[in-house]
């Protein structure tokens, strides 16, 4: 076990534990805070993979902006554990089955794309996550999908303004 492996296992355990706590917490505010911990753990993994830019952007966008808005809504609506709608057993069962199906799709996708047997993760190597390489890739090879996704954001913004200006 070297330092990086210790860090890897620590972050993984932290991520999985916090993810479970997101689901188990009765209080929605606690769930959001545990979710923020998950994002921190994932950013730690990015740093181990030498992708510092992705790590910090993950924190700024998810932990810094989106989760603040989540907290905002929960605090303003004053959601408490006892006001949460009760789900019956069938709903829970359906949730478990659909979640399991989704997991299966994800796992099979990952397994099909690359041959994973006998390979280990490259820690602290590779430099695709550095801002220079990422920027080059985004603005040369993937420039069209990148620009199209920005149009998507614009349309979401316009939609929000339209909803906000109802009167």
């Amino acid at each position: 076990m070297n330092t990086i492996q210790v860090l890897f296992f620590f972050l993984s355990v932290l991520a999985i534990f916090s993810a479970i706590m997101v689901l188990v917490s009765k209080n929605p505010v606690h769930s959001v805070l545990w979710l923020i911990t998950v994002f921190f753990a994932i950013s730690g993994h990015y740093i181990l993979l030498n992708a510092q830019f992705l790590a910090i952007v993950n924190l700024i966008v998810y932990a810094g902006a989106i989760m603040v808005l989540f907290l905002f809504v929960i605090m303003l609506m004053n959601l408490n554990a006892d006001t949460a709608p009760r789900k019956n057993l069938w709903m829970k069962l359906a949730g478990v089955i659909s979640g399991g199906c989704f997991l299966m799709v994800l796992v099979s996708l990952v397994r099909q794309t690359v041959e994973l047997t006998g390979k280990t993760v490259m820690m602290k190597e590779g430099n695709i996550g550095l801002i220079r390489n990422l920027g080059k890739a985004l603005f040369t090879d993937f420039v069209i999908p990148f620009e199209i996704s920005s149009v998507l954001f614009l349309s979401a913004m316009v939609g929000a303004v339209v909803i906000g200006k109802k009167d």
Binding site: I36, Q52, F53, I56, V57, L59, I60, A63, G64, A65, V68, L71, L130, I131
Partner: peptide, 18 residues
């Protein structure tokens, strides 16, 4: 001296809200 220093500051500032 990380190569994303400015973004790091930005990230920490955005966490200050919590």
């Amino acid at each position: 001296d990380i190569n994303i220093g400015v973004l790091y500051i930005f990230g920490v500032v955005s966490l200050g809200v919590y």
